[in-house]
């Protein structure tokens, strides 16, 4: 009854997908969109406002902000996507150990995730960075580790629901082997919710990554990662607004679009499930 797919929301999703395509191009071939090198220092051109030469102005070292924003897409996205991948992999493996491995394995995995979930994810991420030290790879691992227990719980829960479902019962009654039933029914029906949640989590992971960068714990200078750029701009707010606005706008736009596409994916997926129509 609710959520009638309107023309407006379809248009929004298309727009979001188009923006994401642009961001993806910026991440893969930044040279196509910005010809100026992102790290070229030119003190004579420091702290210019937006203008014809430098569309978004320049920072305190005279670097072109537009170019840095474009080149910032890659580290920013890599951080979020990488972290999500880490979480999906670790979560799925943990969950499958719990579901297939019998009571003892399930108990161990559940108590482990209990402890990890009984702990704010952000704190977990900060702790991992504290141990491994700041940097891109470590920040990715840290955020992935923070997401993984929730993912594991989701897959395990879904798998248990499927395992007790009437259609698994029907397959058992038909005489199929346990392994066959798991491969044919349990896995394919338990994993899609994880992929949906993962899509929805990419936005959150990108945000978390740039937050770590902002705190100086992610990619190190002179990386044009958006959070790191904003951190550098914090001290210059009194003198120029451009450096605080453009990287943040790029980040926000990216996350909004990821979320729009993710929600669309979720709605499609839930529309396909029985009982949701």
């Amino acid at each position: 009854m609710r959520r009638a797919p309107s023309v407006l929301s379809a248009l929004g999703t298309a727009l979001a997908a188009a923006v994401l395509l642009l961001v993806a191009i910026a991440a893969l071939w930044p040279g196509l969109l910005a010809t100026d090198p992102p790290n070229a220092v030119d003190p004579a051109q420091a702290l210019l406002g937006p203008g014809p030469g430098h569309w978004f102005g320049t920072d305190q070292l005279g670097r072109d902000i537009y170019s840095r924003v474009v080149h910032g897409a890659r580290p920013s996205l890599l951080l979020g996507l990488g972290a999500t991948l880490v979480a999906v992999g670790a979560g799925a493996v943990l969950a499958m150990i719990a579901v297939v491995g019998g009571r003892v394995a399930d108990e161990i995995v559940m108590r482990l995730t209990d402890v990890l979930l009984a702990f704010p994810g952000a704190l977990l991420a900060l702790l991992v960075v504290a141990v491994l030290g700041p940097g891109t790879g470590n920040a990715t691992l840290a955020i992935g580790a923070a997401f993984a227990p929730g993912f594991a719980r989701l897959v395990r829960g879904e798998a248990l629901v499927v395992r007790e479902s009437d259609y698994v019962r029907a397959a058992t009654v038909l005489g199929y082997r346990r392994a066959e039933v798991y491969l044919r029914h349990v896995l394919p029906n338990a994993l899609p919710p994880l992929l949906v949640l993962a899509t929805l989590s990419v936005g959150t992971a990108v945000l978390a990554g740039s937050a770590l960068s902002f705190l100086g714990l992610g990619p190190q200078p002179p990386s044009p990662e958006w959070g790191a750029m904003l951190s550098a701009g914090r001290d210059l707010l009194g003198s120029t607004w451009a450096i605080a606005v453009f990287p943040g706008a790029a980040l926000t736009a990216t996350v909004v679009c990821v979320n729009v596409v993710g929600r669309d994916l979720r709605n499609r997926f839930e529309g396909r499930r029985p009982g949701a129509g």
């Binding site: 009437d166 259609y167 019962r169 029907a170 009654v173 044919r184 394919p188 029906n189 396909r272």
Partner: peptide, 19 residues
Amino acid sequence: LRPRLQLVQQDPLASFDPR
């Protein structure tokens, strides 16, 4: 022997793999 003994459940939709 399983094939010789079959089951029809109350909610047919729930008894089909949704895919």
